[in-house]
């Protein structure tokens, strides 16, 4: 019974979330649920607040009102509780943010070692397994600056997988990459989706979103304008704004 309920309850839930920078309202009454195993892609023009939204979910950005609930627990504002919840939600950044002074292997084990207190040997074994899974196991002894952007981003994904997260947030994971490296990162994310990982992905890659996402969230000016299945969104969007947005993308691609 209880198992049943937790399967039905959303893993990530935002209720009436609002955020301001001074007089600028960057998030407007956002309500959103992400269920276990679901892949949600957030798309929209730049400055629409989609990155900010993604970052509020583990409180890298604060909110002014509303509520964020992760696996039944309200996201705390500070302290140990907040750290514990963050440990359960992975985050992959646009600019990778690998620790520059640590080797690739150490980047992956530092989370489990510090936060989960995993024994060193076990952490290293798992890290090597994860690095292999994302295809960079040969780089394990190098430092981040010696890797290509695509490789670094795959390491960043391995780093967050090492924490056994309940969900992973992707904040424009391919926006800082050279075009020829985007594919290798998207492939890794696609694999994760197949394995049933719960993911929130802020992205500009429309084909990828259409292929991988279970649901598309379209944002503009800090508000969610449309929530739809990928098929419906990309073939017959409900709102004029979404149609305009998709059209500008099409024009650009020509």
């Amino acid at each position: 019974m209880s198992e049943n309920r937790s399967a039905l309850a959303p893993l990530i839930e935002l209720r009436h979330v609002d955020k301001h920078y001074g007089s600028l309202r960057v998030l407007k009454d956002i309500t959103l649920s992400v269920h276990k195993g679901e892949v949600v892609a957030i798309i929209g023009p730049s400055g629409s607040g989609k990155s900010t939204l993604c970052r509020t979910i583990n409180r890298l950005e604060t909110i002014d009102s509303g509520e964020i609930v992760i696996d039944g627990e309200v996201l705390p504002q500070e302290g140990k509780k907040l750290a514990e919840l963050r440990a359960q939600v992975g985050m992959v950044f646009q600019s990778f943010n690998l620790f520059a002074h640590k080797t690739i292997l150490d980047n992956v084990i530092v989370g489990p070692r510090e936060v989960l207190h995993t024994p060193k040997k076990a952490a290293e074994e798992e890290a090597m397994r994860l690095l292999k899974r994302v295809g960079v196991e040969e780089q394990a002894r190098k430092v981040p600056a010696q890797l290509s952007g695509g490789q670094q981003q795959r390491v960043a994904i391995a780093r967050s997988l090492a924490m056994h997260p309940k969900a992973i947030l992707f904040d424009e994971p391919t926006s800082a990459l050279d075009p020829e490296m985007i594919g290798e990162v998207l492939d890794v994310i696609t694999e994760l989706a197949k394995d049933g990982m719960t993911m929130v992905i802020v992205t500009h890659e429309m084909n990828f979103a259409r292929r991988v996402a279970d649901r598309i969230i379209f944002m503009e000016d800090g508000a969610i304008l449309e929530e739809n299945t990928p098929e419906a969104f990309f073939t017959e969007p409900k709102t004029q704004r979404a149609r305009d947005f998709l059209n500008t993308l099409k024009d650009r691609d020509k």
């Binding site: 890298l60 140990k80 939600v89 985050m91 950044f93 520059a100 989370g111 960043a156 924490m163």
Partner: peptide, 15 residues
């Protein structure tokens, strides 16, 4: 120290 690395550490659940 890159601000992003501090955010990454925090996202891993570090105090």
């Amino acid at each position: 120290v890159a601000v992003g690395e501090i955010e990454a550490a925090r996202s891993l659940g570090m105090t």
